[in-house]
Design a binder for these strands. Structure first.
Lengths: 152, 152
DNA sequence: TGACATATTCGGTATTCACCGAATATGATT
DNA sequence: AATCATATTCGGTGAATACCGAATATGTCA
């Protein structure tokens, strides 16, 4: 039975790391509460319950629930359940790799879009440019794949 | 004196590439008109004027101006001026590298945030985790730097 | 300097997003 | 099946974003 965190181990919701992470990933499309939650849970030594997140971040239960589900879907958080209770806890995945996987995925998608667009074009200069870009993005995608699989 | 594009060479604003690119980068925080403009200009053989963009994408002149400036700031478009006229034209940069540079930059920033946060932590398990993550993100950043400089 | 062409800024408006608390759904136990 | 604890969904509301057209700024030429 995991204990709730003592006040000493509980992150401060105004921690500079949380604020900096929010400034980094919110402009990238991450909703604000999800961003802060990611930062908060990254600073927690153990997985935390929704109620602890609610207390720690001072947000509504429903907002916490929605954000946690989103982060789980992105591979940033992992959900832990427990026999005998409906309560769940969320902890960070290894490396919060969701952040990197999402970027790798978008680069791979871009490479595919460019390759498809090159196949559809009729102007030679545009076709050549799209092919060149597509190959470049594919190279970057392959490199990312390599370094991300080494990290396992 | 560059001629305006003929109808044959002018991209269709409903081109599948433009729509797919919009679906990819708008959720990443790119404003919709800027996303469509990027796709449109990537399909143009030559740099295009704001009026051509307005006609091609069916948006207001002011929206086109704001979006073009934003894409220029992101390193995705390049602005071409011409003696004797105030008119400007926008064309894509090499590889639209702004997309990749921005991702590399965010990974580098993440590595730095983690390193700083590890230095500030007092719980050993959290410190170790942040250090490990920071090193991982730094490795990915370095690999991206490598492959992006080869692309030049 | 004035006229004109062009880009940019500004304020208004509609739409979307973000967040909340209430209502509802769900899981566990007796 | 009833009860309770917990998570999730839903609808309302305010804030932020997106886009427009008018107003303004800016560059060029005579």
């Amino acid at each position: 039975m995991m204990n709730d965190m003592t006040d000493k181990a509980r992150p401060d919701c105004n921690d500079p790391f949380i604020e900096a992470l929010e400034r980094l990933i919110v402009p990238m499309g991450m909703p604000p509460i999800a961003a802060r939650m990611q930062g908060y849970i990254m600073l927690c030594p153990e997985p935390v319950s929704l109620d602890e997140i609610v207390d720690g971040l001072r947000v509504s239960k429903s907002s916490a629930s929605v954000a946690a589900r989103l982060l789980e879907r992105y591979g940033i958080l992992r959900c832990y359940t427990e026999r005998g209770t409906k309560r769940v806890r969320y902890g960070v995945t290894e490396h919060c790799a969701g952040f990197l996987l999402e970027q790798m995925r978008s680069i791979g998608t871009m490479a595919a879009l460019l390759r498809d667009a090159a196949g559809a074009r009729r102007d030679d200069a545009v076709t050549a440019r799209l092919k060149d870009m597509g190959a470049f993005y594919a190279r970057v995608h392959t490199a990312l794949e390599g370094v991300l699989s080494e990290g396992d």
